[in-house]
Design a protein around this nucleic acid. Sequence first.
DNA 1: CGGCCACTTGAAAACCTTCAACCTATGTGG
DNA 2: CCACATAGGTTGAAGGTTTTCAAGTGGCCG
Lengths: 225, 225
Amino acid sequence: MHTLERSRLRGVSGTETDCAACPGSRRCWGDNLAAEAVYARREPPLERGARLIEQGQQPALYIVATGCLVLRVSLPDGSQRVVGLRLPGELVGLESYARGEQAYTAQAATASAVCRLRLPAPGAGGAHGALLERLLMKSAAQPERASAPWAGLPAVERVAAFIENYTQRAQLSGREDPFKLPLTRADIGSYLGLAPETVVRALGHLSQAQRLAVRGRTVRLGGPA
Amino acid sequence: MHTLERSRLRGVSGTETDCAACPGSRRCWGDNLAAEAVYARREPPLERGARLIEQGQQPALYIVATGCLVLRVSLPDGSQRVVGLRLPGELVGLESYARGEQAYTAQAATASAVCRLRLPAPGAGGAHGALLERLLMKSAAQPERASAPWAGLPAVERVAAFIENYTQRAQLSGREDPFKLPLTRADIGSYLGLAPETVVRALGHLSQAQRLAVRGRTVRLGGPA
DNA sequence: CGGCCACTTGAAAACCTTCAACCTATGTGG
DNA sequence: CCACATAGGTTGAAGGTTTTCAAGTGGCCG
């Protein structure tokens, strides 16, 4: 059954076809792919180790048909980290539409096959409601996101990353420079997976290294400016 | 400006209004909220410490207008962990639609105000394309996922959580019991923030504790069944 | 003023990483 | 078919970081 399915899938590679005609459709879209047709283009099969997308490339959305993809990000310091796994039925590259570019590199961990989805042009509105709804549900259900950029880093860096992320978002939401943390050290620790005491010491180090100024819950960035 | 905005917002609390009429609309929906109207209902203001949603409740989607919410999950062992923060313009509760129930408890970290969004009924299709598209973009951009359930846990538990999550997804995608990990120990370590050697030793411990059987890249669950 | 809670600081213990060596499987060329 | 090369995997010991435990400080509110 598995091999049969695979060969039938390979048969339509390269053409854009209705997902309803695909034997693996249930895995991708669930049981009732009724009302509105979803069209996808089967891409050429990926050998183990082949790259589907490269970090920084232009947005594109895929759904895994068979195999398994590993998602990696390259950090500014040159190191790489695995940030996710995608199995059949899961989405690859959705984040790229929000960012304007691919957030990670996707590489086949085993021989894999994927289909490319065409996302309706932004602002087109109206049509494709069902597709969008399904994508939304899928993305909200996707077990782990291009995830914790800080796991495994030393505690000081985790806290620094948290503060940076927080201040960026706080600015976006219209707050001004001396930011006030709404969380206790215990909450920050719970979020980062650190003991409260460790958060205190980390903030102390960052303060001493002039990377920021902390007094109580008030933080001010004093970056390498 | 801030206080003016807040008072105007409070004025419409309880009624479902067009977001375009809201002075804070740009923060929630960006610059051009043109084509299609989005309607939201302003909820009564939340005092510091008040709960907006409770883990396990029925699905509901909110967008933060002012203040800040903390997201927490209660783990089976009774402990709690912070899994996210939501600032103005960010979404709360989207995951609930995929899961059928709220994934976390949301509590006001500071006095806050939120609007409730009405998500088009599943399967309604057609209309609301713009709303869905915006939600999709927002959710894909949402900085941290509502889960890195393993951060801060001992290495053994992190690896166990990874294997469990992987096998669940592998089953969903149609794989059978002796699962084959597509990743090297180094990749698993990179994903979990652990050294490869630590992954090896953790797998050893899990194996010895009968929690699973590992041989090379083949794992079989041997849970507390 | 007293109590509570968050925050801070110090020292010992536990844990994880690093380093270095060795082992095993797989695949290639002879 | 074997020899070798390579990549992944495993194991042990030393060293560094983080957690834990314990005690003490500071602010806020009844």
